[in-house]
């Protein structure tokens, strides 16, 4: 089973969100970067489990510059066999999807596993775009993936429940909670990761379909209105008459 897992570099979940250059760039000062949690915890680990059960290989792919290498090494430490970095700046989902789809098509993977979104740009776009570019089925927000030969049985989140779908390889999915349990790399994995192949390849020609013009922070909350614990009726009154929420 030849598995490709897409990983993105994302700011740590507790990172301070601030902007520089006239609010046009994310301020990376003091920010710790991690593998995007959905990519790491769910897509990568499920890929590794399938390889362990069925044989094959897990390759991680990232579109980015050399500053992505530490998070790529982390994925290798968790257990991926090798890595590919397509050397490009990433500002647009369609651009990234084209890079990955081109690589995936050339190298005939059985499945391409992504996270459900990145925690920085919250796009939920790249995986579905890759699928269309590969003319392959796409299952979004998958919470379970089982393989039986070339047939995949996948559960995906829907409004108030899950839908069970079946498809054949090759396919693309985006992973949500439930797919797998996060793994912590051990010392052996970390040592091995240093010498595993990380191939840097040139980007293919593509346009940016979108451009980020600037950022802003949400207006601060006007402050919490406190109600005394002995006066719960007042809370209900405020929610009804002031907030008009009940």
């Amino acid at each position: 089973m030849k598995i490709l897992v897409c990983i993105s570099k994302a700011p740590d979940t507790t990172a301070k969100i601030a902007f520089t250059d006239g609010d046009t760039k994310f301020d990376e000062n003091g920010v710790q970067f991690i593998v995007n949690p959905y990519d790491e915890w769910y897509a990568l680990v499920r890929g590794l489990e399938l390889k362990e059960a069925n044989g094959g290989s897990v390759t991680v792919i990232n579109v980015g510059r050399a500053d992505s290498d530490p998070v790529i090494r982390k994925a290798l430490a968790i257990g991926a066999d090798d890595a590919v970095r397509i050397d490009a700046d990433t500002t647009d989902a369609l651009y990234v999807a084209k890079q990955i789809a081109n690589y995936a098509k050339e190298n005939a993977y059985d499945m391409v596993l992504c996270g459900k979104e990145t925690i920085d740009y919250n796009g939920s776009q790249v995986a579905g775009m890759i699928a269309e570019l590969m003319n392959a089925p796409y299952v979004s927000l998958a919470s379970k993936l089982d393989m039986n030969g070339n047939t995949a049985t996948i559960e995906r989140d829907i409004e108030g429940g899950v839908e069970v779908v079946e498809t054949a390889t090759p396919f693309v999915l985006s992973s949500a909670k439930g797919m797998a349990e996060a793994r912590i790399p051990n010392m052996r994995g970390i040592m091995a990761a240093r010498t595993k192949p990380l191939n840097v390849v040139a980007a293919s020609e593509a346009n940016n379909a979108t451009t980020i013009k600037g950022f802003s922070l949400p207006p601060a909350k006007s402050g919490c209105k406190y109600v005394d614990a002995d006066n719960v009726e007042e809370l209900v009154n405020l929610l009804h008459n002031e907030a008009k929420a009940i």
Binding site: I17, N122, N207, A209, T211, K213, L217
Partner: peptide, 13 residues
């Protein structure tokens, strides 16, 4: 963006 902690203005080209 940033899980509701900020907004971005994005231009479609």
């Amino acid at each position: 963006v940033f899980s509701g902690k900020a907004f971005a203005e994005v231009e479609v080209n």
